[in-house]
Design a protein around this nucleic acid. Structure first.
Length: 611
DNA sequence: TTAGGGTTAG
C-alpha cells in the first residue's frame, strides 16, 4: 500500500477510535520497514494508541522508534497524562535532553504543565513555569492557558488570573479554566462575574461553573444556573454537566429534582453512560430511594468499581449492612477489584450489623492483600464499629495508636458510645480529656454535660453549661426540609406554616398524647436553655423534624414514605418520638441528618439507636 | 503528525 493511503487510514483510525485497525497497520509497517525511515508515522500511531488507552503499545513504540522528535515527546507525555500518570510524564520528560538532546517546545511545555496540574504539589509546577518563561516559547497562548488551568487546579485562582491577564488571544478554554478555578475555590461571586463577561458561553464553560458550584456546596445556585442554561438552549452534547447536576440533587437529597434529572438523561439518550448511571445510583441512594438505586444498578450492562462502591456505600448508609456485604462478594466474583472507598463502605456496613470480626478482617485484608494504606476515614469507620458494638477499650486503644491526630469528633463518638453502653467511669475519663482539649462543637458540649450529669459531677456540668452559653450565639439554626414531589418546604424550629399552624399543632398534640400512653417520657437533657421542665418539653415539641413530619402526614399521599433532610443531627428525643410516630401512624419515615440516614419503621430505626 | 478548559463513589 502506498504511504499516503496508509497515513490517511491511520488518521481515520484516530477519528473512529479504532486501535485494533491501527495495530494491523502497525504490523504492515514493521513488515515493509516503513518504520525505519518515517518517524512521523510512528508519531501518528503513538497518538492513536494513547488516545485509545493502549498505553503500553504507545510506550513500546516510543522506546523502539528511530529518530524521535519533539512531536514524539509531546505525544507520549499527552498519552501518560490521559492515563492519569503525571509522575511518569515528569520522569520521562527528565530524560528528554540526555536521550535525544532536545529542548522542550511549546507543545511539550503544554503537556508538561498539564502533568504538573495533575500533581497536587505545586512546587514542580512553579519550576516548570520559570523554565517556560525563560524559553523562546514564553509567548505561547496555549501553554499559558495550561498554566491558568494548573494554578486553578492547585487552588490558586489569583495566580491563575495573573497568567490569564497576559494571554493575548483569550480562548474559551482559558476562560473556562479560570472560571472553574474560582468556582472550585469557593469564590462563587467572582466565578459568576467572570462567566457573565465570557462572550461565547459553550457547554464546557457552563459545566465548569455549575460543577464548581456543586463541588463547593452551592447546590441551589447550581440548579438555577442549569435551568438558565436550558433556557438559553445550550445543546447538551455530552453528559458531564448532567453528572454534576445529579450530584447536586443527591447532596440536597431532593428526590423530586433527582427524578427530573433522570428523565432528562433518558430523553437525551445518555442512560448507557457509565459515569452517569453511577451518578444516578448514588443520587437515588442519597435521596433514600434504595430500590430505585438498586434497579438502575442491576440494569447496568457494564459496572466498574465506582458502580459497585456506590451501591455498597448506599446500602451501608441506610443500615442495610448484610446486603452491602453480599454485594461485595458479588463484586469479587465479578472480578472487580475494590479500592479504598469500597473498604470505607464495607467497614461502615459491618458496624451496622454488628459484625466486629468481619469488619476487622476486611480492614486487615485491605492492608495486607491489597497493599492499601488506611486513611483517617478508615480508622474512623473501624472506631465506629468497635464503639457501636460495645468494644470500648479496643476503640480507645485504636484511637491512641492510629497514625492520625484524633479530632474532637472522634473523641465525641467514643464518648457517645460510652453513654450508649452505660460505661460511666470510662465516659467521665473521656469527657475530662475532651474538656481539656477545649470543645468547639455545641453537640459535643451536650454530650459532655449529659455525661457529667449522669455521673453526678455537677461542678463540671456547670462548667460545660458556661462554655455552651459562650458559644450559644454561634449555633447554626436547625431546619428540616421535606420533599413531597410536587412541593418542598423548609421548617425551622418553633416556626410552622402560618396557614397550617393549628392543624400541625393539633396533630402533634394528638400524637404526643398517644405516645405518652405508650410510655414516652420526654428527654429534656437535649435542651440547652435554662428553663423549667414544662418549658423544656415545649421546646422539644417544636423541633423542626417534628413539624416536617406532621406536615408530611397531613399533606402526603396516605401510606407514602415521608422523607426529611435535617441540617443538624437528630436530637435523641426526636429520635424516640419518630420511632413512636412510625409505629402509631404505620408510616415509614426516612430522615437524613448530618451524620447518617435513619429509616423509622414499626417503632424501630435502622441505625439501631446509635448515631 | 504534536499542545489548553468541564463529569461519578468516601
Amino acid at each position: 500500500m502506498e504511504i499516503g493511503k496508509l497515513f490517511y487510514r491511520l488518521k481515520q483510525c484516530i477519528q473512529l477510535r479504532a486501535p485494533l485497525e491501527g495495530q494491523k497497520i502497525h504490523a504492515h509497517m514493521l513488515k515493509t520497514g516503513i518504520v525505519s525511515y518515517l518517524p512521523s508515522f510512528c508519531n501518528v500511531l503513538m497518538d492513536l494508541y494513547g488516545r485509545c488507552g493502549y498505553l503500553e503499545d504507545a510506550l513500546k513504540l516510543f522506546e523502539e522508534m528511530p529518530g524521535r522528535d519533539l512531536v514524539s515527546w509531546a505525544s507520549i507525555l499527552t498519552s501518560l497524562n490521559q492515563a492519569n500518570l503525571p509522575h511518569r510524564s515528569i520522569s520521562i520528560f527528565s530524560s528528554m535532553f540526555s536521550l535525544d538532546r532536545l529542548q522542550p517546545d511549546h507543545f511539550v511545555f503544554a503537556s508538561l504543565i498539564k502533568a504538573c496540574a495533575l500533581i497536587s504539589d505545586d512546587g514542580l509546577g512553579r519550576q516548570v513555569h520559570c523554565q517556560f518563561l525563560k524559553s523562546t516559547f514564553s509567548h505561547d497562548d496555549v501553554a499559558k492557558s495550561s498554566l491558568v488551568d494548573m494554578y486553578a487546579k492547585h487552588g490558586l485562582p489569583e495566580k491563575a488570573s495573573l497568567v490569564f491577564d497576559t494571554i493575548v488571544s483569550k480562548s474559551t478554554a482559558c476562560w473556562t479554566a479560570l472560571i472553574s478555578g474560582y468556582a472550585r475555590s469557593g469564590k462563587k461571586y467572582e466565578a459568576i462575574e467572570m462567566f457573565k463577561k465570557l462572550e461565547k458561553k459553550n457547554l464546557e464553560a457552563w459545566t465548569a461553573l455549575i460543577s464548581g458550584l456543586v463541588q463547593t456546596g452551592n447546590h441551589a445556585d447550581a440548579f438555577q444556573l442549569f435551568a438558565e442554561m436550558r433556557r438559553e438552549g445550550v445543546e447538551i452534547a455530552d453528559p458531564y454537566v448532567l453528572s454534576s447536576i445529579s450530584g447536586a440533587a443527591a447532596s440536597l437529597a431532593a428526590l423530586g429534582l433527582g427524578e427530573q434529572v433522570h428523565c432528562l438523561i433518558l430523553v437525551l439518550g445518555y442512560d448507557s453512560s457509565l459515569f452517569l448511571t453511577n451518578a444516578l445510583v448514588d443520587m437515588y441512594a442519597k435521596c433514600s430511594d434504595l430500590s430505585a438505586a438498586k434497579k438502575i444498578f442491576d440494569n447496568m450492562r457494564k459496572k466498574d468499581v465506582v458502580s459497585w462502591t456506590s451501591i455498597i456505600v448506599g446500602m451501608a448508609q441506610h443500615g442495610r449492612g448484610s446486603e452491602a456485604l453480599s454485594l461485595y462478594d458479588e463484586m469479587i466474583s465479578a472480578g472487580v477489584k475494590p479500592n479504598e472507598v469500597t473498604f470505607i463502605g464495607l467497614v461502615y456496613a459491618c458496624s451496622h450489623v454488628g459484625l466486629v470480626e468481619r469488619g476487622r478482617a476486611l480492614f486487615e485484608l485491605m492492608i495486607k492483600d491489597y497493599g492499601m494504606k488506611p486513611s483517617l476515614r478508615h480508622y474512623t469507620c473501624l472506631l465506629d464499629l468497635y464503639s457501636r458494638s460495645g468494644y470500648l477499650f479496643e476503640a480507645e486503644d485504636l484511637l491512641k495508636r492510629m497514625p492520625f491526630q484524633p479530632d474532637e469528633a472522634v473523641w465525641a463518638a467514643l464518648l457517645s458510645a460510652c453513654t450508649q453502653h452505660r460505661n460511666t467511669k470510662m465516659g467521665v475519663r473521656i469527657a475530662n480529656h475532651i474538656l481539656s482539649l477545649g470543645p468547639k462543637d455545641p453537640a459535643t458540649c451536650i454530650l459532655l454535660s449529659n455525661t457529667y450529669a449522669g455521673a453526678g459531677f455537677w461542678k463540671n456540668v456547670s462548667k460545660v453549661r458556661k462554655l455552651m452559653i459562650q458559644m450559644g450565639t454561634k449555633r447554626e439554626p436547625g431546619y428540616s426540609y421535606i420533599d413531597l414531589g410536587k412541593e418542598s418546604l423548609v421548617f425551622y424550629a418553633g416556626e410552622s406554616l402560618e396557614q397550617m399552624k393549628d392543624e400541625i399543632f393539633d396533630l402533634l398534640n394528638e400524637l404526643d398524647a398517644e405516645m405518652r400512653k405508650r410510655g414516652y417520657v420526654p428527654d429534656t437533657s437535649f435542651v440547652l436553655l435554662d428553663m423549667n421542665q414544662h418549658e423544656k418539653e415545649r421546646q422539644l415539641f417544636w423541633h423542626s423534624e417534628r413539624l416536617a413530619v406532621a406536615y408530611g402526614l397531613l399533606k402526603s399521599i396516605p401510606g407514602a414514605v415521608i422523607r426529611i433532610v435535617k441540617n443538624l443531627r437528630v436530637c435523641g428525643d426526636c429520635h424516640t418520638v419518630l420511632k413512636f410516630i412510625s409505629s402509631i401512624t404505620n408510616r415509614e419515615i426516612v430522615v437524613r441528618d448530618l451524620s447518617r440516614f435513619h429509616h423509622f419503621k414499626n417503632g424501630n430505626c435502622s441505625c439501631r439507636d446509635f448515631w
